[in-house]
């Protein structure tokens, strides 16, 4: 995909300012530093040394030492007065400061002293050059979870040690497992531990607030971390079943918060969605929650099943509270 003009211009100016401070940087280092492929750095260098002040005679142009460049080393010999770095715009400053503040508030405790110092000094440095511009955005990350368990997860992450978990999944099933913790995915709604699960022999995400108990073990982590991916939301896949729900407008949050495949607005403020189903237990929970706003469901029989579940629950309430026995349910309908 073609890079946008402002992004490329910002990097071109940034490269000149950077090379003015650091003589003799390899193309690979430059690529790593600016987060672009080496070929792009070479294209940028080509652009830079054809740019300069009007006239565009050799002495007007930004220039590099060509002998060094032949060996893949960038040595700036003329910056044409472009050695100053660009200041941050208000939105740019806000985006980084808000993120750093949120990090410090939520996971500062998970870091060791050195990491915490780096985070704090970065925030201080940024605020010192951007002023108070950052007060207009505030991101509150939610770590959640049992404090003792979260502390153990942090210990294991910092020490790169294996972790033993007692965990309850969305279908309300408790399991015990040993995992190699990789990273803490901290979101504004809830947080997850991304880890290699030795029981499942696969990468798994564990919601922090569903970890019942955790204990950092002595064994070191043996599985390397997988690639980062956006894990804050349920990732629907082709094999998940779909349901169709037609809901009253007051259940708007369903369309806002769940990964719907299709959303059709209806004339009266209601809407119809096609929803991938994470698990039957999850769907039952959802249908109970939106029952008052449900106008139609497909498959239609789901509505009746949910109603039956609700009637069984009501029976548990209507019984004499001291009467003792709540008859065990016959299992999910």
């Amino acid at each position: 995909m073609a890079e946008r003009t402002p992004e490329r211009l910002t990097r071109l100016l940034g490269m000149v300012a950077y090379l003015d401070r650091h003589q003799g940087v390899t193309v690979e280092q430059m690529a790593g530093h600016f987060g672009v492929p080496p070929a792009q750095i070479l294209r940028d260098v080509d652009t830079l040394w054809m740019s300069g002040t009007p006239g565009y005679w050799p002495h007007d142009l930004i220039d590099f030492d060509s002998a060094s460049l032949e060996h893949g080393v960038l040595r700036l010999t003329e910056s044409r007065g472009m050695s100053r770095a660009l200041r941050l715009g208000a939105r740019e400053a806000v985006s980084l400061v808000a993120a750093l503040r949120a990090l410090r508030e939520s996971v500062g405790e998970a870091l060791d002293a050195e990491q915490r110092a780096v985070l704090t000094s970065t925030l201080d440095a940024l605020v010192s050059v951007t002023g108070e511009a950052a007060g207009t955005v505030d991101v509150q990350l939610s770590v959640g979870g049992v404090p003792e368990a979260v502390a153990q997860v942090r210990t294991a992450l910092v020490g790169r040690r294996r972790l033993r978990l007692r965990y309850v999944d969305a279908a309300d099933t408790v399991s015990e497992r040993e995992v190699d913790p990789w990273q803490l995915v901290t979101g504004d709604e809830r947080s997850y531990l991304q880890a290699w699960c030795h029981e499942a022999r696969g990468e798994r995400l564990f919601r922090l607030d569903r970890i019942l108990e955790a204990r950092a073990l002595q064994e070191p982590v043996t599985r390397a971390a997988g690639s980062r991916r956006d894990t804050t939301v349920f990732q629907p896949e082709a094999e998940h079943e779909r349901v169709v729900l037609e809901l009253d407008g007051r259940a708007r949050w369903v369309a806002e918060q769940l990964p719907v495949d299709e959303l059709t607005e209806l004339a009266d403020g209601g809407f119809r969605i096609v929803l991938p189903v994470a698990s039957p237990a999850w769907l039952q929970h959802l249908l109970l929650r939106v029952a008052g706003y449900v106008r139609a469901v497909e498959p239609a029989a789901l509505a009746g099943q949910v109603a039956a579940v609700a009637r069984r629950a009501l029976a548990a309430y209507d019984e004499d509270p001291s009467g003792g026995s709540t008859s065990a349910p016959d299992g999910p309908g």
Partner: peptide, 29 residues
């Protein structure tokens, strides 16, 4: 905006080394 801010700040940053001060964290909003 955040990516651009990062590019600007890289101009005044040290050449990268292998250190990864904050591995194992992935904030998301």
């Amino acid at each position: 905006d955040a990516a651009r801010a990062l590019t600007k700040l890289r101009a005044v940053g040290a050449t990268p080394t292998a250190t990864d001060a904050v591995a194992a964290l992935a904030p998301r909003v």
